[in-house]
Every structure is written in C-alpha cells, then in structure tokens.
Design a protein around this nucleic acid. Sequence first.
RNA 1: GGUCGCAUAGCUCAGUCGGCUAGAGCGCUUGCCUCACAUGCAAGAGGCCGCAGGUUCGAGUCCUGCUGCGACCACCA
Length: 917
Amino acid sequence: MPREIAKSYSHQDVEGPWYARWEEAAHFAPAGSGEPPFSMVIPPPNVTGSLHMGHALNNTLQDVLCRFRRMDGHDVLWVPGTDHAGIATQNVVERQLAAEGLDRADLGRQAFIEKVWSWREETGGTILRQLRALGVSCDWSRERFTMDEGLSRAVREAFVRLWEEGLLYRAERLINWCPRCKTALADIEVVHEEVDGHLWHVRYPLVEGGELVVATTRPETMLGDTGVAVHPDDRRHAGSIGRRARLPIAGREIPVLGDAFVDPEFGTGAVKITPGHDFNDFEIGLRNGLEVINILDDDAAVRAEAFAAADGKVPAWAGRYRGQDRLAARERVVEELTEGGLLAEVQPYRHAVGKCYRCQTVIEPYLTPQWFVKVQPLADPAMEAVRDGRTRIIPETWKNSYFAWMENIKDWCVSRQIWWGHQIPAWYCAGCNESLDPDGGRVASGCVPVVGRTAPERCETCGGRRFVQDPDVLDTWFSSALWPFSTLGWPDKTADLDTFYPTSALVTGFDILFFWVARMMMMGLRFMDRVPFRDVYIHALVRDQEGQKMSKSKGNVIDPLIMVNRYGADPFRFTLVAMTAMGRDVKLAEDRIAGYQHFVNKLWNAARFVLMNLDDEVLRERRRPGEEPAGEDPDLADRWILSRLKATIERAREAIAAYRFNDFAHHLYQFTWHEFCDWYIEMSKLRLNGGAGSRAAQRTLHTVLRNILLLLHPLMPFVTEELWGAVTARDAASPRRDDIMVQHYPASDDFPADRDAEEKVEFLSGIIRAVRNLRTEMNVPPSRKVRVVLFDTEERLSLVRAYEGLVCALARTEPLEYLSGGGRPQKVATAIVDTTEVYVPLDGAVDLEEESGRLHRALDKLETEMGRVRKKLANENFTAKARPEVVEREREKAQEMEEKIDALNRSLERIRELQAQ
RNA sequence: GGUCGCAUAGCUCAGUCGGCUAGAGCGCUUGCCUCACAUGCAAGAGGCCGCAGGUUCGAGUCCUGCUGCGACCACCA
C-alpha cells in the first residue's frame, strides 16, 4: 500500500521532539559497550557567552565526528561544559552592579562572589541550551564547569604539585597591568596594535654642561626615570657615560650609562630609562643597579607619594600630577616641557602598543608580586610529543606556529587581581608576616607563602594559627589547561579516565592554539604522563561573505540561532561543513544556507517518492547489507547505483577520516542528488507500478535511500532521523534501538563493485545526454518524441538494444532505429558518444553549413588533443618514467579518440555528399 | 621587524604522488508547471589557473623572484 508523508519538510515541528527523544533514550551517553572508545572534550565556552558562528562551526564539526564514530561502532563520549571566564564574567557582573550604582567594593569579596554565582545560576547556561538547537550530541549528564567542586579540587591539586616540583614561584616582576581590569595579564593576553602617536624629543641637561636629547613615546613616564642610556660604542655620546643628567621637571640627578641594548641608529641614540614602567628599561635597570620608581597606582593615575623624599615630603611639582590619569599626565608633562623650552622636537610616530585582550585598554608595565609557572620544563615535552607524532596537529601548517611559540615561551604569570576564579591555595602566617593586611589586601613581595591543598592550621615557624589566604585568583586558562582530564575525574583514578584519556580528538579554532591547546599539552603531559589528545583539528574563522570578521560594530553578524530557526539545523550544519576546507576561513552568506535547504527538500522528496512506491512487505523486510537486491534478475540500474553507493561510502569515509569535511559533504551531496535522484530514480520509474522487476527496483530504492540517510546523518541529524522513521519498520519491543543515530554507519564492503554496470550506464547516459542536447539545439519541444538513429557496429548497438526502454523514456524518443555496417543514414551525425553516432532526423532541413562548422570545431579540438597524446606516447621518457596506470590511461584515451575522429570524419564526408547533391 | 598562508569561472571555493579534455555550488542565458520535488527538470555560456623566470618528457600542482591580500608572532625608546 502506498503511503504519504507531508509534502514538504518542516523543521520546526521535528527538531525539538527528536532532540528530546535522543536525550531521553540516553543515546548521547557512552554505551559502555567495550567497543573502542572515542572521546572529545568540548572547548568550554565562556559562561557569559551566547552562541555565535564560531561556536556553531566548532560544535557542528565535533558533532559530525561524534555521530560518525558512534555509528561506526565506537563507544563515544563527548564532554560538554563551560568556562568560568574570570575577567569576562567579573566584568559582566560588575556592569550589572554599576547599573545599580554599586561597585564590587561595596559588596565585599564574599558577597560579590555569591552574586556571580547566582548570576551564573540564572543566565550562565544559556550557551549550552543554545548548543542543543544545533543538534549536538554531548553527554549532558557529564556537564562540567571549571569552578565546580571537582574541577576546583583538580586546580588546587595541580597548583600544589607544581609548587612541590619547583615549577611555581612567587616574585616581584614587571608584569602587564590592565588599569581598567586592575589585574596582571599574561604576555599572551596582551594584543599589540599599531597606533598613531608621537615621538617627543626631550632635552636632558647634563650636570657639568651640555645635554642629551632622548626620544620617547610616553613622556609621562619620565617622572619615573632613574637613568639615561646610550650605546657604549656610540662616539657621539662617548663622553657622556658616567656623567649625570638632570631630569627635567623632577630636577633629580640621574646617571648616564652605556648599554648595548640601545640602538644608536634610532632617534637620538639616547634613551631614558624607566625601570618601573618599561620591560626593557627594567632589564637595563637590573644590569646597572638602577632604582625602580613606581609612579602609578592601580588605576594608572599618578601617585605623588612615589616621589616623596626621605622625610616623607612630596615635592611641589608632584602635587600637580597627583591623581591624574597617565594620559592627562602626559599632556601636562608635554605642556611643562614646552614652557621650559625642553622639547627639542615632536614627530608623528606610528608604533605598536599593548592592549588588554578583554577590554582593549592600553597595558601598563607594572611592578607587583605575582605567581609564575616555570614553563620551559613543561614546553620541552609538549614539543617532543608533537614532533614524534603522539599528537597530530591538523592541518600541519599550524605545527610551525606551535613550535615557534613554545620555543620562545616565557614564564607564565598565573595570578590575577580579581575576585572571580580559583583563589590561589597559598596562605600567609599573620605572625611571621607583619605587613600582612588581614582584610586580604595585596600581599607584599617579601611575605612567605604556605602552599597546600587546604588551609594550614598552625604555622611551622612561629606556631601561630592566624593565616590569610592569598587574595589573588588563578588565570582562567590555568583551569582550562586541565580540562581534558579534570573533567574525567582527575585527580581521582576514575574509570572514565582509564577509558577515555587521552581523548581522541580536539576540535578548536586557531585563536586559542596558544592560550589553550599548548597549555593542555603541557599540563596533560605533566600530570597524566600522556598527551591529552591524539589529533588536534584546527579550523578557521567564520567570516562574512566579504571575508570580514563578523562583529557587532560592523553589523555583519549572522546569528546562528536565527539561521537554525529560519532554515533548520540541518541545512545550517551542512553549509558549515561543506565550507570547511583545510586551512581556509569560512566565508558565509545566508543564501548558502538557503541553497542547502534545497538539498534537504530534495532528500525529503526523494524519500517521498520511494515511500509512494513501496509495498509494505518490502518496507518491512529486514535486509542485511549485501543481500540485496534479491536474486531475481539483477537489473543494470540496480547494479549501477549499488556500485556507485559503494564508491561513495569509500570516499566519504576517507574524507572524514582525514578531517576533509568539505569533501565529505560534497561526495554525499553529489551522490544523493546527481546519481540517485537524477538518474537512478528516473530509471526506476520504468519498472515500478507493477512493471517487470518492480520488486527489485523497490528494494534497491529502499536500500539506497536508507544508506543515504545513514551516510548523511552525522551532517543532518534531524531530517535523516525523521525520514528514517518513515522508511523503517520499527521493532515494537524496543523502538529506540531503531533510531538512526544508533545504527551502523554504512561500510563499503556491504556493496559490490560493478565496473561493468558503471561503464554501461555511463555509455547509455552519454547517449541520453546527446539526444537531449540535440533536442535543445534543434528546438524540439519537450513534449514531442523524436526519432533517433544510432550507427555503430552490431556489437555496440546490441548494448543499447538491451536497454532501449531506458533510453527512449529518459531521452523521450520514438523506438530507436539501429544501423550498422553499410547502410548509413542519409542524415547528419550530430553527436558521437564513444563510437556510436547519434542521428536525430528531423522534418525540417538541417542547416548543413552550421552542422559542418560544428563538427569541424569538434574535430579540431579532438585532433589537437590527439596530437598531444600521440606525442606523449611516442616519448620514451614518458612511457618509461610515468606510472604504468597513467600510461595505460593515455593509451586508452588515444584509442577512443581515434575512433571518435574516424566517426567525425565519416560524418563530415556525409555532409559533403549531401551538400554536393 | 620575523614567520606562515592565500591568489583557479561573475561570486565562494575544490583540485590528493606533477600525468583524464581544469571541476563544484551559487549566480547568469535558453526551454519546460514531464504523474517525488518550480526549494524543481533539461540544455548552455563563462578560465593567460596573479606576473616573470626555472626544473621536467610533461607544471594549476615543484623551485626562485615579483605584485597584491590576509593572518600570526614581536619590548626597539
């Protein structure tokens, strides 16, 4: 009995219910089947985040891998979760407070943290809910958060072990300070940007007469100058070294010294040295024993007290700057210098400044005590693991960046002066450290920390029992670095760790290769002794169609949720995957998604066609792959499509195994639309409706459709599941075992290769195409059948004869007429397929001139090519050196062309004869 | 400043070990409401493979230089 499904697919009605059903059936959780494991951890999005294109691409690719592996018999675990995103989250909640006219100090640390937690309870899960709309098959029962109890324990454990192993230290160093976030940042969290600024040339008078002119981009820092440096070999300044200069405005005397760091070619060859506010100057200061003056406070406002003399008195000039922001101070300094005639020159100057990656505020080098991880001992094994292939980076080109970064790595500043995060598990004894602020203010550099998994009870030195915990929290990326094993239960020895570590693959964007991937490598190797993942697949950025980064300010953002809503998750996913070529950015335009929605429609209608023509018994048959079609006279079309199916499975599997996502999508698209729909379905129509071989056709339609659904499922989970339901007779006892997402992925061994059928269909379709082509050229209305005469040897023609019905139907012709041997038709051969001449005799006269011209052009083209191939084959170098299959191919080609040329010549001869008449 | 990519049809891109007549999708032109689908069917037009050299029997593919674009890294005041 024929059945109907809706005329078109409506994703709105289907996606939600299927997702709920999968979750309810626990399809997302590993089955514990003992099959080989396949595991991934999600790159945890920030709790503050909402789904953007980058997440959509990232998670779609992961889901494709997971669904494929799950169907291919692996025990799949995909761990989801979110990152507490220290600074970002704190910013969000602080903005909320600001709207109420409060800041975090008003609440105090404890209350503020509670506020963040409750914020997270309310809105923090948004992004994970949004991810579900994509159809991702994470195991939600294992959802983790970098601040949850287990992961926090892992963080403390890791911190303590690093400390015990001497890989962690606390020291006062110049660090990158963000005056807006009021915290230290790691080097990698500073983004350098070119800005237009000025180069101010300032006169520093020498005490014994003369002057040195120094160039600077940040004149306000001169208040903290404690020296001037020139290159020791610079003859212009040779006499200055060892003398003293008088610092303008401050009036302080500072030494002039020689240091090889100074580039004599740049500026005036003299550099002001501000060890408190410049990384290079800090080093020079260390080498030369210069004093370090910190002229700024946490807000980067001038701290007049920094200039206090020994008696505590602050000079009058310092008062003029007190509390001024560094930029205001800069203007003031320039003003005073100008007034004093001390500004020799001002040049416009374009240079790079460091900015906070979170808030874009210009970074200030700042001297504070911080915690650092010694990275070199961690980086070496991390490089080795990639070098020897324990971890593969795909595409390989990223390996270079990875090594370059690892080789130049500096110690990692892991402490942050914010409140939201893992508070550092270090305590200071109030008895031993007198300067300690019991309210948890900043801890002076001299204080001695006690590091431990829990708060110490009694001081081993003084026996005191009062401790203050270090107020700093850890860099967010510290906990992220542990993610692949902390989410599996570390530091406990868990079954999950045993089974699923190392994870199989990591899919991520290149933007966090250093932030995250590199650090996971270091920590994974350190604590687990094994790499955290076998493969790292690095995908590109999603850009708009002009190749611009998507950003709110540019207004070119495409919202994934709107796309899912408008077109459905399936076309959206398919688009992303189809556009993910190795090492290329994804340029996305909405009409792409609309285009692939057509593909979903096509698939839907193909299924509709199959169902309309399927007998109940056929639908209910539980055929095993390879058993079909059942014995009865296997039809050429059936043999052909099954052979093509086999080839498609092979190619698709190769593509996905190599992370060639675009190839994967395209092979399946091509097969579904252009082989199955365009050709097989059309061919099948002859036999359906009770025709001979109807059953076999039905079985093949059913089989191929089901396999197409299986093949496409990782890409388009919803529509395939919906259709699978329609073409599958479910086992009433356990219907969920029949869901497509837990079926076996097609294997190419399930289907026979049939070279013979492929060649024949290729030939027949060539003839059909030729006739169609001629019809169009001669303006034959589609409704009208044409006469077709074929001329070739009897042997070749018999092939067409056997499948005449097919040709007649698909090319809309009268019964074919065959000619071989002597009796050539009195008409012009207008097309040649292989060696077969195809004639379409028409009532109206054929324009012989035009035909002759057409054939001559075809002949020219062929002969040129023929000449090329002949030359090639005559070339001993070629026949000797080229691979045998290449040579063989050329030989076959030559022969085919020769026959074709013969046929063309015969046609031209015929034209000449006709013209002569 | 250093490093790495990219340049192929109007647009977005494939092109695997150097060897089929350089492909696809979208767009475009023409004709069709053919009983799964007009979200469709059929046919077609459209290419100095960035430029200049080199290697090779043979180069879109490998090498060198140039031009243009992009990304990453970087403490030159």
